[in-house]
Design a protein around this nucleic acid. Structure first.
Lengths: 332, 332
DNA sequence: CTGTTAGCGCCTTCAG
DNA sequence: CTGAAGGCGCTAACAG
């Protein structure tokens, strides 16, 4: 049985397509009897308005797309949960797609905005260069979360990564850190900002950043282990390490512990994100809490404004407060 | 500047819309000169075919939707990565959406298939009752992954959960387990199958399942801790625990360790999934490897067949082999 | 090889 | 309150 259309519904209900459409869209100008007849016909035919036809006619889809490199990330999943909940409140469906750090795939996904498959875009971790993001943000309904291009046209929601890194590094120093090390990534802008914050705190304390280790690939547990192993082969050994994420910090802690050293006794370790990984780690991690869910909510609100008032909306960054969470991986 | 249409392109290229459409769709019946003119016009106008119009005309979207309760799961993210890669090879875009275990939201997402927003659906962890899944699978292009409704109409890809649980439980017994416990979930069908496998292995060994603990809510690290705490308050203490996931097993191990007992010395613990959590745990977890990526790939292949030959496709389950991975959380 | 044209299914004026 | 009709942008015949 082929899919039913408004025509079919109109016919079986004994009214015109106009009336069917009005019922469908909750127009008040319909008599109760018509409404009932149409409702019956719809049920009988198991009718659903075809999305493409409706989208074409209305020139909007009520769908948004959220992009990130990968899905298995405590922060990303939480940000998108916030965005999805906020979107639902406004009647939007949030679709998510991983780019896998693949430029071509990312481009194809972004094209879904350009070709009207979705009304707006939330970008978490862009793979394209900043210029492209900027140009895109210039003309399309796009908002960035966590990573915000460092440009005039930038538009998005994040914490102050530099300040957050500064804060936790200062904590490391205040609790005895002298030979300061960092394990980070320079792939993401937020990673570079965290590096800046770390350096600033170290410099202000009159210390020098003894070891700076970065990965340009994945930034996960294994990367944490690998870079920590490198760290342990250097002399002098650091006595405090700031890691760019909890997961990486967990790998770092694991490597240090396996080497027979104590955390924080021999080396203090700090993470970032306050994800579940911070609690799963032994010892539990001192970290920076990112209000991920709220950031997602806010990102959608910003996007909604951008979609609704495409011209007038003022661009700019929104910073949400972070929080230092002290646990057991740093000295009390 | 309003969005350009085929009309606009045709006008500036000095050809007809038919020719533009042919160029757009790579029809061979177009002269080189026309092709060039159209290409130039497209570039000049920055033209993109409108998805809704094209979808309406073609009666398909080349998009599929993948649903799961949540995104932050090692298995789910890996399954969807496999599905996404396979889909891309066939020109499909895979969109992902979390249902949050909310019936209404899940329904709304499933409606995207009914109203033609997408061409097919991959379901990971359905929230709706089995009957509904079955009915849906009956008439729509849906395939299930990991969780497959226990019905005739069932259609999907998974491992043999019962056998896998049986295998790892037998390992626990073979390595000294006598007072057998399990921490699982009955929310998911796979969880119930794992329970069956556990019970069978225990029974065959002439033992009795001393402690069976289940959660009907989240099945995560905290749940693992909570149920393990319960376990530790019972007497006699178990000497082997089978957990329904690595993450839960990690929570279980953590609780046991914190209580001053040794894993596996006092209590052996086994996980499930062979996710990164199994390696992050100390001691590293003995577990069951699920070929998640391959399952995702296969799920898409099955879906493609279902979408392509909507009538003739034979339904049924596809089982992929699992593997026992022995690490340090069970006795050697 | 190219132009013309008829819809795809829906919404929304505009008359009545 | 309701019906008729036009058109959203695109593709796919069908002529030429």
């Amino acid at each position: 049985m082929a899919r039913a259309t408004v025509q079919d519904v109109a016919k079986t209900a004994g009214v015109s397509v106009g009336t069917v459409s009005r019922v469908l869209n909750g127009s008040p100008a319909v008599s109760e009897s018509s409404k009932a007849k149409v409702a019956a016909a719809i049920r009988q035919l198991n009718y659903r308005p075809l999305a493409s036809a409706r989208d074409l006619r209305r020139d909007r889809t009520m769908r948004i797309l959220a992009l990130a490199k990968n899905l298995y990330s405590p922060v990303i999943s939480e940000v998108f949960r916030g965005a999805g909940d906020a979107a639902a409140l406004s009647g939007y469906v949030t679709l998510i797609a991983p780019t896998a750090g693949d430029r071509e795939r990312e481009q194809q996904l972004v094209d879904m905005l350009r070709n009207g498959s979705v009304d707006g875009l939330i970008m978490f971790s862009p793979t394209m260069p900043d210029e492209d993001v900027e140009e895109m943000a210039e003309q399309l309904s796009v908002v960035q979360v966590c990573e915000i291009a460092d440009a005039e046209a930038a538009f998005g929601v994040s914490i102050d990564d530099r300040q957050a890194a500064f804060d936790i590094t200062r904590h490391l120093i205040r609790t005895g850190g002298r030979r300061m090390a960092m394990i980070g990534t320079r792939v993401a802008r937020s990673g570079r900002l965290r590096e800046e914050g770390f350096r600033k705190a170290v410099a202000e304390a009159g210390l020098s950043p003894d070891h700076m280790l970065f990965t340009d690939g994945d930034f996960d547990f294994h990367a944490g282990r690998r870079l920590a192993r490198e760290l342990l082969s250097l002399r002098p050994l650091p006595d405090a390490v700031f890691c760019g994420s909890d997961t990486v910090a967990a790998g770092c802690v694991r490597e240090i512990t396996d080497a027979g050293l104590r955390v924080p006794g021999d080396i203090a370790v700090a993470g970032f994100d306050d994800s579940i990984q911070a609690e799963m780690c032994v010892p539990e991690l001192t970290t920076i809490r990112q209000p991920a869910y709220a950031m997602g909510q806010l990102a959608f609100e910003a996007l909604l404004a951008r979609m609704t008032e495409p011209e007038g909306y003022r661009r700019g960054r929104t910073f949400l407060p972070h929080e230092l969470v002290v646990r057991d991986s740093t000295n009390g």
